[in-house]
Amino acid sequence: MNNIRELSKDESSGMTIIVKTISRLVLSFILLFGFYIILYGHITPGGGFAGGVILSISYVLLMLAFGSKVALAKLSNFWASMLDNLGALAFIVIGFLGLTGGYFMTNFIWHGHPGQLISAGIIPLCNIAIAIKVSAALYAIFIGLSIYGRIVTEEEK
């Protein structure tokens, strides 16, 4: 944790101090809004796809403002791809658990009262799984574009 704090104070990497200060203020709110969109997906507009993209955008902002070292110290390339796989796996496992209720992807949990936060059976769980999958995948591809996609110029060679 200390390491991240030191890295984020490094003046040489990332953008200017103005961008860093603003994104420090804004980042937590972006994350919070993402969680809201995911968890309330079955009640209000939103859901796993939109919320997942919001979560990935918060990490992309971290990467753009503070440089790739800070973002990768928070969530490394390995863990991003791992979370991507785990999200997809969780979605499939929920689908197979539906076999207990009859067929693939049955809504087998008690539905509750419509309109409450804990209701709708597997829908919030699926939303969370999809959000993990989408956010990790898009963050991983941004890592790929900004690190692997670096053009090697003639001088560097």
Partner: peptide
């Protein structure tokens, strides 16, 4: 369309 938008990003 909701899913197709996110796949468009991919």
């Amino acid at each position: 369309v909701l899913t197709s938008i996110v796949i468009g990003l991919g």
